[in-house]
């Protein structure tokens, strides 16, 4: 993960990484440090943020901070799951489509075009609801739907290197297809792929929160960041600050993922190496 490491040397990359680390910690230990039972109703409904309830309480008197903490794992892990599925079924055909003949290439291109034409959110909802209203099904659907993005990005990156002379040379020396991909192609497409993955995780998080907001893939009392927002919606006139905390959390996570992607983009590849060298040179010069 050389790409990520060099991105951490920029200020934006470092800030993004710190926020993401905090969110990850929250996702792991969140449910255990919740001060109240996230499912327990109380008489104190729709309270403003105060010393006991830092984020206030919702319409059933449940502590919002506890619900946000308890909902963290489901909200974060599911995004990773979807991106993981998308990576596998997008990248593998993306690389192989360049090498395995025209018929295979044509088929994968048409299938990916077909997937792109599917209206994203509606299709994810339909899959999740029709295949049993569970979060796993929803994530498989989202994963399949983001696969074309990975497919296109990988394919474009591979195509730009597939006919390089050093690749042809190694093929003439008798290197197997797998060896060519592993030693020559993979290292060239990795920076692009890391950036795409960070961006896709941000998009995945937004989609997951949208789905849970609509009540897809979750059973009602279970807390999720999107679900908390949905329950706030009916009580906006009594508690207009209700949506602020879960929204801020989603936005901070998504924003840092995008920021990290930009930082990696700026510091990887030939262009990025030049930039890093220049920065280092300037620092030496001023010191």
């Amino acid at each position: 993960m050389k790409q990520v490491a060099s991105a951490l040397h920029t200020r934006a990359g470092l800030i993004a990484a710190i926020v993401l680390a905090l969110v990850l910690v929250l996702a792991v230990i969140g449910p255990y440090i919740a001060p109240f039972d996230p499912l327990k109703n109380s008489g104190a409904i729709l309270q403003a943020p105060n010393a006991t309830h830092w984020f206030g309480t919702d319409y059933l008197g449940r502590d919002v901070l506890s619900r946000v903490l308890a909902g963290a794992p489901l909200s974060v892990y599911t995004a990773f799951e979807a991106v993981g599925i998308g990576l596998v079924i997008g990248v593998i055909p993306g690389i192989t489509s360049v090498y395995l003949g025209r018929t295979y290439e044509w088929i994968t291109l048409r299938v990916m075009d077909g997937l792109i034409a599917l209206p994203f959110l509606i299709f994810a909802i339909a899959v999740a609801a029709l295949l049993g209203n569970a979060v796993q099904q929803a994530m498989i659907a989202v994963g399949i739907l983001i696969a074309p993005a990975f497919y296109r990005i990988t394919r474009a990156a591979v195509l730009s290197h597939a006919n390089s002379q050093y690749v042809t040379a190694s093929q003439l020396f008798g290197a197997s297809l797998f060896r060519v991909i592993r030693t020559h192609v993979w290292s060239k497409i990795l920076p692009t792929l890391v950036v795409a993955t960070a961006n896709a995780t941000a998009a995945g998080l937004l989609i997951v929160s949208s789905l849970t907001f609509l009540g897809i893939g979750v059973v009602p009392p279970d807390p999720t960041w999107g679900g908390i927002l949905a329950s706030d919606l009916s009580y906006l006139s009594q508690a207009p600050y209700g949506p602020i905390f879960p929204s801020l959390l989603i936005m901070a996570t998504v924003g840092s993922l995008n920021l990290l992607a930009d930082a990696i983009k700026d510091t990887s590849g030939d262009h990025g190496r030049v930039r890093l060298l220049k920065r280092r040179g300037r620092r030496v010069g001023t010191a």
Partner: peptide
């Protein structure tokens, strides 16, 4: 524009409701 890219659609919708109806 970077900020807007992080705002989920429903948050934007809720924010607009708060501003223009409340």
């Amino acid at each position: 524009t970077s900020f807007l890219a992080t705002v989920p659609g429903f948050v934007a919708a809720i924010a607009l409701i708060i501003v223009f109806t409340l």
